[in-house]
Amino acid sequence: FRFFVYSAYVERRTVVAVRIIAATKTRGADSAIRENWNLKFSASYVLCLLADSGVKPHETVGASVAVLASDKLNSLPTNLLIVQDTEPKPGIEDNLHICVKPFHFSFNRFDWLVEWFEINRLLGASHFYMYNQSLSSSVECLLDDYRKQGLITLLSWQLPILSKVEIRTEGQFAAFNDCLYRSMSRTGWLLVIDVDEVVFPRRERTLPALLTSLRASYQPRSKAPSAFLFRNAFFYLKWEDDPEANTPLLTSRKTRRWSTPHSLKNRSKYALRPRDAVELGNHFVWELAPGSSSVGVNTDRALLHHYRINCEFGGLTCLQVPSTIDRTAHWWKDELMERVGVQHKRLEAAGCFQKVVDQ
């Protein structure tokens, strides 16, 4: 029997409890997170109910909690977790943070990751939550520099369950939902994407401006959705470079995409108000708090650009799908090129480029 716990948070909305992020066998788990692909193990929740305990939610913040698989009162806990608060702090309404799934396979896309960070910062992101299963030394150096700037929370992610055989990709659903509760007190908006994806608005310069505009279109404001889903379009990296690109940036060079984006909930990604969400999936929100809703965003307002290296099922047949040129990313290219250059100088001074050569 294997049961692993990672973090603990105060829950005040659907139930008064301490919510623990865990992973265990899918069959028999009381609160298995729904997106588990029918594999043997699943991310799950453990709810430590407070209703009859005499303990108020705010009194649990900073306390320790453990899960014991024993009915013996003298059993010693081996998995103590510090309970973290989820009450939103003042002044966070316009913040946008980003959550990504765990890095694995010694992730080493150094140049692209710099560009990805900087385009997302241009688009309004102010903090990133990342989980490290394995990184190349150069990317580890890169992330350490961003961490020192206060831009990322980098968490160790060593789950002793076999990825893609026993549990879905590095237990990513546990990471997504840890990210949800970890960010809840810190940001008004959370964007859940992968590091080969960027959400580009079509009218606004930033994503917070887009999200504010989308919510403002609902009257009364109390009816405004709490989550917005963005349709996905593949920009295959094996398609030709754009002859109009005058920078080496990937987002400038790779402008050919699928003519017809995927339908909603099929490879879509989303931005949400963390305080209104209960359970996250990969491509949509599984559960929102009572009274909250999610909607899709029209592609004339925003689109998820998915810069994919390989065809989904191998081979090269995907390159034959109907495609079109989309230069939306060029709107940011000059400022992005400048920011990438500044960051490269920082990373060179930190010795990160030497690690790229050595790896």
Rank of each mutant, 00 (worst) to 15 (best):
N282T: 13
A233G: 08
S226N: 12
R231N: 11
L272C: 15
K223M: 03
P248H: 02
L280K: 04
G281D: 09
Y270N: 14
Y236V: 02
A271K: 01
F230V: 14
W239R: 15
K269M: 07
F230K: 15
W258P: 00
K269I: 12
F235H: 09
R275W: 08
K223Y: 02
Y270I: 02
E240G: 11
D276V: 00
N232G: 07
R273Y: 09
N282F: 01
N266L: 15
A224F: 07
R256M: 07
R231P: 05
H262C: 14
R275Y: 14
D276H: 06
K265Q: 13
E279T: 09
P243F: 00
V285L: 08
A224M: 11
F284R: 03
W239H: 14
P248I: 01
L280F: 05
R231T: 02
A277N: 15
S263R: 12
T251F: 03
F228C: 14
K223E: 10
P248V: 06
T247C: 11
S263T: 09
F234N: 09
A277E: 15
W286F: 10
H283L: 00
R231H: 03
R267N: 14
F235C: 10
S263V: 05
D242C: 08
F228V: 11
R257M: 14
T247D: 08
S263E: 07
E244T: 10
L288C: 03
S252V: 05
F228P: 07
S268L: 05
A289M: 10
F228N: 10
G281V: 01
T247F: 12
L249H: 13
G281Q: 12
N266V: 08
F235E: 08
P261E: 14
E279I: 01
W286S: 13
R273T: 11
S268I: 04
L229K: 10
T251L: 07
E240I: 00
H283M: 08
E240T: 04
L288I: 04
D276P: 06
S252M: 10
H262Q: 12
L280D: 13
S268A: 10
T260R: 14
S226L: 04
L264E: 09
T255D: 12
P243H: 00
A233T: 01
Y270M: 06
V285A: 11
